[in-house]
């Protein structure tokens, strides 16, 4: 009859042996390397897509549809620039994931460029809109659309809870504002709990 110690010792010894053999296996480092490459495919693809898109941005903007009534999801719709932070980017129509991987996007939840109403531009905090953190009140932002260029002033910077964003924007009464939205904190690992909002209001023409 075997003792209880012998009963537990055998599986422990087998597990230890298996672990030892796994750690000494030449295939393990190779396997880990392969897994690392596999995991890195998606972020590298996104990065490449952004770089290539950035490279094509000028041409896309030049060749944009001329009829503002006939723009579709993914079409270039605006150009956004802010000198102090170095933000200088094309904006595509429709903030879906596919478009956001390329450029910041003009959200369909807001008004279109040629209509009055709150306009919403979304961007990734770890891509084009990381520069939003460098914007300060009073600075100017240029927004070019099919209807022409307009200068906006950074009026207010807000941080709201992710779940409150929809309500917060719906509550806004300002029909001339543009709001730039990205995730916050900028250096958060995982799904960020807040949204960083930069409210832009049209710059008033000086009285002559």
């Amino acid at each position: 009859m075997k003792s209880a110690t012998a009963d537990t010792a055998a599986p422990i010894a087998a597990t230890t042996r298996l672990l030892g053999e796994l750690l000494t296996s030449r295939r393990l480092p190779l396997g880990l390397l392969f897994a690392a490459l596999l995991i890195a495919v998606r972020p590298v693809y996104h990065l490449t897509l952004r770089v290539v898109s950035q490279w094509q941005a000028e041409r896309l903007w030049r060749d944009r549809p001329q009829n503002s009534q006939l723009v579709f999801s993914g079409d270039p719709i605006a150009w956004l620039s802010h000198r102090e932070s170095g933000l200088d980017t094309l904006v595509l129509l429709d903030g879906n994931q596919e478009n956001l991987n390329r450029f910041p996007c003009w959200s369909m939840a807001g008004s279109m460029p040629d209509r009055r109403g709150l306009k919403i531009i979304l961007g990734h905090r770890d891509a084009h809109f990381r520069e939003l953190g460098l914007m300060s009140q009073g600075e100017t932002v240029q927004l070019k659309t099919q209807q022409g260029g307009q200068t906006f002033v950074v009026d207010q910077i807000e941080i709201v809870e992710k779940e409150q964003l929809g309500d917060h924007l719906i509550m806004s009464q300002d029909r001339d504002a543009v709001v730039l939205v990205t995730c916050y904190p900028f250096t958060y690992t995982g799904s960020a709990p807040h949204r960083y909002l930069v409210w832009l209001r049209p710059q008033k023409e000086p009285l002559v």
């Binding site: 690392a36 490459l37 995991i39 890195a40 998606r42 972020p43 996104h46 990065l47 903030g95 879906n96 994931q97 956001l100 991987n101 996007c105 959200s107 939840a109 919403i120 979304l122 961007g123 990734h124 905090r125 770890d126 891509a127 809109f129 992710k162 964003l165 929809g166 924007l169 939205v181 990205t182 995730c183 958060y188 690992t189 995982g190 799904s191 960020a192 949204r195």
Partner: peptide, 16 residues
């Protein structure tokens, strides 16, 4: 609602 505005790229690169 609105689309969220961050990719999971950083997490994946970190794991890699």
């Amino acid at each position: 609602g609105l689309a969220a505005t961050a990719t999971n790229d950083f997490n994946l690169l970190l794991a890699a």
